[in-house]
Design a protein around this nucleic acid. Sequence first.
DNA 1: ATATTAGCTGACCGATCGGTCGGTCAATAG
DNA 2: CTATTGACCGACCGATCGGTCAGCTAATAT
Lengths: 228, 228
Amino acid sequence: MAAHKIPVTTPSLAEGARSIIDAAEALFSEKGFAAVSLNDVAERAGVSKANIFHHFESKDGLYLAVLRSACESVPVIHDLASKDTPYKERLTTFIRSQLENMLRRERVSRLIQRELFEQGPLQAKQLAEQVFGKNFSYLVGLLREGQAQGELREDIDPALVATLLISTKVFFFETRHVLRHFSEVDFADEPARYCDMVIDALLMGIGTRTQPLPGALKLPRRKKSKEE
Amino acid sequence: MAAHKIPVTTPSLAEGARSIIDAAEALFSEKGFAAVSLNDVAERAGVSKANIFHHFESKDGLYLAVLRSACESVPVIHDLASKDTPYKERLTTFIRSQLENMLRRERVSRLIQRELFEQGPLQAKQLAEQVFGKNFSYLVGLLREGQAQGELREDIDPALVATLLISTKVFFFETRHVLRHFSEVDFADEPARYCDMVIDALLMGIGTRTQPLPGALKLPRRKKSKEE
DNA sequence: ATATTAGCTGACCGATCGGTCGGTCAATAG
DNA sequence: CTATTGACCGACCGATCGGTCAGCTAATAT
């Protein structure tokens, strides 16, 4: 009886403000900041435009709030498996779940991604960079661990591999609709398989084995060269 | 005497129109379509706003013209070396020159990239996809060649590797200013070295060699596993 | 010499932009 | 009961938006 019809006027974030943020998030992530008018937001949220200014001080303020909410909602990447899980599997699971998260929460991802690529109001950019950086650093750590366990080449920069993996993930997310049109591509709708293939190629290498030593770096391998 | 003071009223594309396209290209690539007003464009081009409508039928028309000019200006990727050049070198040169081109022509690149990521006025998107697709297909061909010559694993999808390489290149271009802030990254200002490292890692693989056969695919490699 | 055309402009248009203001309404506090 | 407060709204503001229009000028065609 005590808890069956609470009016709940202010459920932690006004409810009214939430509907505005939701609407704004959808619109901003679709069309970008400049292309969205506050009339659009108000209409979509089902409130008056004046109400937006009651909850947020300006359009920029609203955008910042939206981005803040988006960044908070990005799931923190957690260590996924025990140490004795095969390293390749750990890496695959990690990348896979990251890509899956991006695809599942497309609006948020696009929002952050755009902020990363374009130059926005500094404060917003810092938010996005923070999320991205956390992601990046964790992956670098995971790769270092792989090196320490002797499963990854020691002579390779973990930051490079992290960049490579993340770029692959982001690029897939951003261009899968374009890739779908290409006759050469058959993985545009299979993110999991895509991740598997990428990690497989990266771990094994795409080159046929001609030199056994993994330590050989940079020396210009020349084979079947007729010159000189 | 015959060719030293020609008035050249219409040097193939109006000159006036060119200055408008130049200004628009700069602004659109910086801030995106919606955030640029025709007043900005007119001011930057040093013409009246009405003059823009004399040369182009609308803001969308101007944007399309800008994008068209940008796409045309993208250098066609040409076969770079003779067949007996070491394959790794050919690949490296190719990716390097592509990234260098992107960096050198930043405005154009950003314009096309944005069109690829965001959804624009269909016609514009098709233009960008065409440029991207040409790029992509050529790279796939180059990789197939590598397979035929026996320098690349046969059991790997060339389209996957092409996606991986292009994503790497694009991602570097888009986020180098962000990467620069990361303590783990020391290659944010060295595109050429970055390309070398990526190709090295990709060709050799980042994993330590545990199974000699390049034909072995997908079987879950387990080493030092205590389970079971 | 005259008509036509292209390049270009300032003045102007209705619509929409981000933002303000005065006020209504319901809930809570005293 | 009244006072206060926060959520909410319609009406409105000046500025700017994309776009139009009448007209000027200089080159070309006839």
